[in-house]
Amino acid sequence: MADNRAALAGDRLLAYAALAPSAFLLLLLAGVPTITVFVTAMQDVGMGDTDGPFIGFENFAWVFAEPAFYTALWNTFVWVFGSVALEMLLGLGLALLLNKSFAFRGAARAIVLAPYLVPTVVAVLTWRYMLHDIVGVVNAALMSIGITDQPLLWLNSQGLAMTSVIMVGVWKFFPFVVIAILGILQSIPQEQYEAAKIDGASDFQQFWRITLPYVMPVFLLTALLRTIWSFNKFEIIYLMTGGGPLDATTTLPILVYLKAFSDFEFGRAAAIAIVTLAILCVLLAIYFFFIKRAEARQ
């Protein structure tokens, strides 16, 4: 790869010209917008406006005094921690299972990966029908085996809404973990297991001493990625519950959206977005630290 570059390093103009459109678009769609959000967060933007007088850090002061912000922060934590923990557990388990050889394994893999490929709106629609209080199949099943005799209000009760949203999120996104871990499982040299078997290692010992050390770096990296993505997730929660009932499932991205496009308070919405970005930056820093360390090891 290094040779690829050294051989024709002279053609500077072409190099910059080819990169320019990408750089321009990324600047336009990510760089400048991030700066705009900072500027908007310092403005008092009224109803339906997109600009307003500068008011310094007042919007930030409002954010940190606003109870809704702390509720959203807590909800975000529950949503991220709940979904990532379950996704990782389920993902690891199913990757180990699908790595074993059995009949129809190809079909089983395809079905397990399917939720990841299905559009979010489709996943939400299907689950909302399944979780419907009255006509939903989930309540019908639970009532027929006697777990509950009242239909559960999966999406319309404050106690259950977050659980439902996490459940649907896990179903939709855990296949990513399966794919990542299955990839690394397939790269473990089989001789190691054969040698361990000859030495009389049990299945558990083989898993603990061979599989787990191989899988661990990818497992941690995947967990971090899932954390970052779950933290940013908007549409699956918005489409399931719209952040409700009341504020039971309002995470930070949902709060930003509602402030901006439902209350039309752009300045305050931007200030929440900046605080959200600051938290994300911490997660990104951890991610890049791990990537760098993994690269250094190779």
Partner: peptide, 11 residues
């Protein structure tokens, strides 16, 4: 990795 909801405001 930027949140969509951050980008959508300025856009």
């Amino acid at each position: 990795m930027l949140p969509e909801v951050l980008i959508v405001l300025p856009l």
